Amino acid sequence: VRQEELAAARAALHDLMTGKRVATVQKDGRRVEFTATSVSDLKKYIAELEVQTGM
């Protein structure tokens, strides 16, 4: 499950970095929206997932 969450989070980051205004991911069973202003929060979430998956 964590691998899927990590892939979704990375895709969301890619979307935001390429101009999409809002990206949505499932985080702990709930839907979370990230915007360009919350990229740093999304990067932290990705880092947490990488630690949890041993990457």
Score class of each variant (00 low, 15 high):
Lys27Val: 15
Ala7Asn: 12
Phe34Trp: 05
Val39Leu: 15
Lys43Met: 14
Thr24Phe: 13
Gln3Lys: 12
Arg21Glu: 12
Gly54Asn: 12
Thr18Asp: 08
Gln26Ile: 15
Gly29Lys: 03
Ala9Leu: 10
Val25Asp: 02
Arg31Tyr: 14
Ala9Arg: 01
Lys44Ala: 15
Met17Asn: 06
Lys43Asn: 05
Arg2Cys: 11
Ala12Glu: 01
Arg10Trp: 06
Ser38Val: 04
Ala8Asp: 07
Ala7Lys: 13
Ala7Gln: 11
Glu5Val: 09
Leu49Met: 05
Leu16Cys: 02
Gly19Asn: 04
Val39Pro: 01
Val32Lys: 05
Gly19Thr: 03
Val32Ile: 13
Ala7Val: 10
Arg30Glu: 11
Met17Lys: 05
Glu33Arg: 08
Ala9His: 03
Leu42Asp: 00
Val39Ala: 05
Ser38Gln: 15
Glu48Phe: 14
Lys43Trp: 08
Ala47Thr: 08
Gly54Phe: 05
Tyr45Pro: 00
Lys20Arg: 09
Arg30Cys: 08
Lys20Asp: 05
Val25Cys: 07
His14Trp: 09
Ala12Thr: 02
Gly19Cys: 05
Arg31Phe: 14
Met17Arg: 04
Arg2Ser: 09
His14Leu: 10
Gln26Phe: 13
Gln52Lys: 12
Ser38Gly: 08
Val51Arg: 15
Leu6Phe: 03
Glu50Phe: 05
Gly29Trp: 01
Arg2His: 12
Asp41Val: 08
Leu42Tyr: 01
Glu4Cys: 12
Glu48Trp: 15
Thr35Glu: 05
Thr18Met: 13
Glu5Gly: 05
Gln26Tyr: 15
Ser38Cys: 09
Ala36Cys: 14
Glu50Trp: 05
Ala9Glu: 00
Arg31Cys: 12
Ala11Arg: 14
Thr18Val: 07
Leu49Gly: 01
Ser38Asp: 14
Leu13Ala: 01
Glu50Gly: 04
Val32Pro: 02
Val22Arg: 06
Arg10Ala: 04
Thr24Arg: 05
Gly19Ile: 02
Ala11Ser: 09
Gly29Val: 02
Gln3Ala: 12
Leu49Arg: 02
Ile46Glu: 00
Tyr45Ser: 01
Val39Asp: 02
Thr53Glu: 12
Glu48Met: 09
Arg21Leu: 15
Leu13Gly: 00
Tyr45Gly: 00
Gly54Ser: 11
Thr37Asn: 15
Ser40Leu: 11
Ser40Cys: 13
Arg21Cys: 10
Glu4Pro: 07
Glu5Arg: 09
Lys44Arg: 13
Thr53Lys: 06
Tyr45His: 04
Thr37Trp: 06
Leu42Glu: 00
Ala11Ile: 08
Gln26Glu: 12
Gln3Val: 13
Val39Tyr: 04
Val1Arg: 13
Thr18Lys: 10
Val22Pro: 03
Lys44Met: 10
Thr18Ala: 13
Ala23Pro: 02
Gln26Asn: 12
Asp41Lys: 08
Phe34Lys: 01
Ala12Leu: 04
Leu49Asn: 01
Asp15Ile: 06
Met55Lys: 10
Ala47Gly: 06
Ala23Tyr: 01
Phe34His: 02
Leu16Trp: 02
Gly19Val: 02
Ile46Ala: 01
Val22Ala: 08
Asp28Lys: 04
Asp41Trp: 08
Ser38Arg: 06
Leu49Asp: 01
Glu48His: 09
Glu5Cys: 10
Met17Glu: 08
Lys20Ser: 11
Arg2Glu: 10
Glu4Thr: 12
Arg21Thr: 14
Met55Cys: 11
Asp28Cys: 10
Glu5Gln: 12
Ala7Arg: 13
Ala12Ile: 03
Arg31Met: 15
Val1Trp: 13
Met55Ala: 12
Met55Arg: 09
Glu5Tyr: 10
Ala7Ile: 11
Arg30Ile: 13
Gln52Glu: 13
Thr35Ala: 05
Gln52Asp: 10
Ala8Phe: 09
Met55Tyr: 04
Lys27Gly: 04
Ala11Cys: 09
Thr37His: 12
Met55Glu: 12
Glu4Phe: 13
Ile46Val: 05
Val51Pro: 05
Thr24Asp: 06
Gln3Asn: 11
Asp15Ala: 12
Thr53Ala: 15
Asp28Arg: 04
Leu49His: 01
Ser38Leu: 06
Leu6Tyr: 04
Ala7Tyr: 10
Glu33Met: 07
Thr37Ala: 15
Arg30Thr: 09
Thr24Asn: 06
Arg31Asn: 12
Glu4Tyr: 14
Gly54Glu: 10
Gln3His: 13
Leu42Thr: 00
Leu42His: 00
Thr37Phe: 08
Val1Lys: 13
Asp15Phe: 05
Ser40Met: 10
Val22Lys: 07
Lys44Asp: 09
Val22Thr: 13
Gly29Tyr: 02
Val22Ile: 10
Ser38Asn: 15
Val25Ile: 15
Gly54Cys: 11
Phe34Cys: 04
Ala23Ile: 08
Gln26Val: 15
Val39Gln: 04
Arg30Asn: 09
Lys27His: 06
Glu48Leu: 10
Gln52Val: 11
Tyr45Phe: 07
Glu33Cys: 11
Leu6Asp: 00
Leu13Glu: 01
Leu42Asn: 00
Asp41Ile: 09
Val39Glu: 04
Asp41Cys: 11
Val1His: 14
Lys27Ser: 06
Arg21Tyr: 06
Glu50Tyr: 06
Asp28Pro: 03
Lys20Gly: 08
Thr53Val: 15
Leu42Arg: 00
Ala11Val: 07
Ile46Leu: 04
Arg2Lys: 14
Ala47Leu: 13
Gln3Asp: 10
Val22Ser: 13
Gln52His: 10
Thr24Cys: 13
Ala11Phe: 04
Ser38Lys: 06
Thr53Trp: 14
Asp41Gln: 10
Leu42Ala: 01
Leu42Met: 01
Arg31Asp: 10
Met17Val: 08
Ala7His: 09
Val1Ile: 13
Val22Gly: 04
Ile46Gly: 00
Thr18Gly: 09
Glu33Leu: 06
Gln52Tyr: 10
Val51Ser: 15
Ala11Asp: 06
Thr18Cys: 12
Gly29Ser: 04
Glu33Tyr: 12
Glu33Asp: 08
Met17Phe: 05
Leu16Thr: 00
Arg30Tyr: 09
Asp28Met: 03
Val25Met: 05
Ala36Gly: 06
Glu48Pro: 00
Lys27Phe: 08
Gln52Arg: 10
Val39Ile: 15
Ile46Met: 02
Leu6Val: 04
Arg30Phe: 10
Gln26Thr: 14
Val32Tyr: 09
Asp41Ala: 11
Leu49Tyr: 02
Glu48Asp: 10
Val32Thr: 07
Leu13Arg: 00
Val25Phe: 03
Lys27Met: 15
Ala12Gln: 02
Leu16Gln: 00
Val22Asp: 04
Ala9Met: 07
Asp15Leu: 13
Leu13Pro: 00
Met55His: 11
Ser38Ile: 04
Gly19His: 04
Ala8Tyr: 08
His14Arg: 12
Lys27Asp: 03
Val25Gly: 03
Ala12Ser: 02
Thr37Cys: 11
Thr35Asp: 10
Asp28Asn: 10
Ala23Met: 02
Glu48Ile: 09
Tyr45Lys: 02
Ala23Leu: 02
Val1Thr: 14
Gln26Arg: 08
Glu5Ser: 08
Arg2Asn: 10
Ala47His: 14
Glu48Arg: 07
Ser40Gln: 14
Val32Arg: 05
Arg2Pro: 14
Gln26Gly: 05
Arg2Phe: 13
Leu16Met: 03
Phe34Asn: 01
Val51Tyr: 14
Ala12Gly: 03
Arg31Gly: 07
Ala8Glu: 12
Tyr45Arg: 03
Ala36Met: 15
Thr24Ile: 15
Asp28Ala: 05
Val1Glu: 12
Ile46Phe: 00
Met17Gly: 03
Thr24His: 12
Thr53Gly: 10
Glu33Ile: 11
Val22Gln: 06
Ala7Ser: 09
Leu16Ala: 01
Lys44Phe: 06
Met55Trp: 04
Gln3Leu: 13
His14Thr: 07
Ala47Glu: 11
Arg30Met: 14
Ser38Ala: 07
Lys44Cys: 09
Val25Gln: 02
Leu6Glu: 01
Leu13Tyr: 07
Ala23Lys: 02
Glu48Cys: 12
Gly19Glu: 03
Gly54His: 10
Val32Phe: 13
Ala36Ile: 15
